[in-house]
């Protein structure tokens, strides 16, 4: 058995980058799911359990902020750690996301090394 991880980003490139880093890191993986926006992610989370979510903020249909708020309001989803990976570097946005209940906020571009460190930190506690 390994971990199940969900990557939410409207960019295929961004999702692929994170997925490849996770595979390179030698973390035991059960499944990597991908979603293109918050709505697709919530639909998936209704059916599947995941150990960790990576999410962008700025996405069409449903953005990351709204997605996190929905997750935090749902009993079954509120304990799943969410790591934001966004281009938005504003202090305001970081504070807003922290208040919404995210566990970490990374700004793009991230290095594979940074990503590996943070994933290992979260999965150790998962």
């Amino acid at each position: 058995m390994g971990y199940t991880i969900l990557i939410v980003d409207d960019s295929l490139t961004a999702r692929t980058f994170i997925a490849r880093t996770l595979q390179m890191a030698g973390i035991p993986l059960n499944q990597i799911y991908q979603a293109r926006n918050g709505r697709e992610a919530l639909d998936l989370l209704e059916r599947e359990w995941v150990d960790l979510v990576f999410a962008d903020i700025n996405m069409p249909v449903m953005n990351g902020t709204e997605m996190v708020r929905c997750m935090r309001a749902a009993d079954l989803l509120k304990s799943i750690p969410v790591i934001i990976v966004s281009t938005d570097r504003s202090a305001h946005r970081m504070a807003e996301m922290k208040e919404a209940g995210v566990q970490a906020y990374l700004t793009k571009p991230i290095t594979p090394e940074d990503l590996k460190t943070i994933v290992e930190r979260f999965l150790k506690n998962a």
Partner: peptide, 12 residues
């Protein structure tokens, strides 16, 4: 250098 490590699936 980072391009080479990334392409080879290696971490620094």
């Amino acid at each position: 250098f980072r391009k080479i490590t990334w392409k080879n699936g290696m971490f620094i």
